[in-house]
């Protein structure tokens, strides 16, 4: 029996109102211990109010080689960003 524990990715919500952010990874035999290890490791200075743990093997990532086709279509849609629009000086609350 191998004693190698799988790798887990840890996501921490630092306070209410914010998203979970990737904090790092750790090893654990199962999800319950992964969660507890994450609590001990990544929130020992009260850095979090909520934790997710995900087996690293369960993450599908976009390939860096696909970078251009994957993300470029969004780059030519500046109208999605508020700064695209010109507003006369003095107009407020827009």
């Amino acid at each position: 029996m191998s004693g190698d524990w799988p790798l887990w990715e840890v996501f921490v919500r630092s306070r209410r109102g914010l998203s979970h952010t990737h904090a790092g990874s750790l090893h654990a035999p199962d999800a319950e211990l992964a969660l507890r290890n994450a609590r001990d490791l990544y929130t020992r200075r009260s850095e979090g109010v909520s934790i997710w743990v995900v087996p690293s093997s369960a993450i599908t990532a976009s390939s860096p080689d696909e970078k251009d086709p994957f993300f470029e279509p969004a780059a030519d849609k500046p109208y999605r960003h508020p700064t695209f629009y010109e507003i006369p000086d003095g107009v407020k609350h827009l």
């Binding site: 750790l26 090893h27 507890r36 290890n37 001990d40 490791l41 020992r44």
Partner: peptide, 10 residues
């Protein structure tokens, strides 16, 4: 295991 170093110290 390293994770348990942290847990026991806590």
């Amino acid at each position: 295991v390293l994770e348990e170093e942290v847990a026991l110290a806590n």
